[in-house]
């Protein structure tokens, strides 16, 4: 039995005296895909932020790779987080953002050309990200996240802005990531995407 990658015990988070998560438990093994599902406001994004170490817990414990998540380079070398849209670097094209990702990480998971092809961005490779459509920008975010090497993928609503055809392709891409030994935890409202994963609700009910 492998050591779990994520262990959450008794996690409670209050935001402005409003309880968002209460006594949450979660264990994720390597190679697993977990979909955090539930209605708006049930704490899906908060849970992801806790796992990324960006939201302190009111009580309880969060362990990622056996230790509390730390917002440092060692942690981010293993964890790829896709949450809100990033601020794009001024003056760089879509391709150059991916090139940058490839240049910084010694062993990228795929070549830039492959990533552009897989995420259907070849024709818009020379555009600055702000000139892309919402869905194209989301595909660029996903390309950057999946191009870099990582052990754990934290995705907050990765289906945001994507058309239905690409949503099904995304499920395949995540399956491929998990088959390589990677672990995925994603908050999603997409039923098809969630059906590929073990579903967890922040309220504690496991589907």
């Amino acid at each position: 039995m492998h050591e779990p990658i994520i262990e959450v015990t008794g996690l409670s988070v209050e935001l402005g005296a409003n309880p968002v998560l209460q006594d949450m438990r979660l264990t994720v093994a390597p190679g697993e895909i977990v979909a955090v599902v539930g209605p708006n406001g049930c704490g899906k994004s908060t849970l992801l932020r806790c796992l990324a170490g960006l939201q302190p817990a009111t009580s309880g414990e969060v362990r990622v790779f056996g230790e509390p998540p730390a917002d440092d380079a060692r942690f981010w070398a293993r964890v790829a987080l896709l949450g809100d849209e990033p601020a794009w670097y001024p003056g760089l094209t879509a391709r150059e953002h991916l090139e940058l990702m490839g240049a910084v990480h010694a062993t990228p998971r795929m070549a830039v050309d492959t990533a552009l092809d897989v995420f259907a961005l070849v024709e818009r490779a020379d555009a600055v990200p702000l000139n892309l459509s919402t869905g194209q920008r989301q595909r660029l975010c996903l390309a950057a996240t999946l191009l870099r090497p990582s052990t754990l993928l934290l995705l907050d609503e990765p289906e945001r802005g994507l058309d239905s055809a690409f949503r099904s392709r995304l499920a395949g891409l995540l399956d491929g990531y998990a088959a390589e030994g990677g672990t995925v935890v994603m908050a999603t409202h997409d039923e098809d995407l969630a059906s590929h994963a073990r579903q967890v609700s922040p309220s504690g009910v496991t589907a």
Binding site: G91, E99, A103, V104, D126, V128
Partner: peptide, 26 residues
């Protein structure tokens, strides 16, 4: 951002530099 939206750019290959310098190349 307005400036770059109005510009037409051609992508260039990123030079192979150590990671921090590759980041600063931007």
């Amino acid at each position: 951002d307005n400036h770059w939206r109005a510009r037409k750019l051609g992508s260039r290959r990123w030079p192979s530099l150590p990671a921090p310098l590759a980041l600063a190349w931007q």
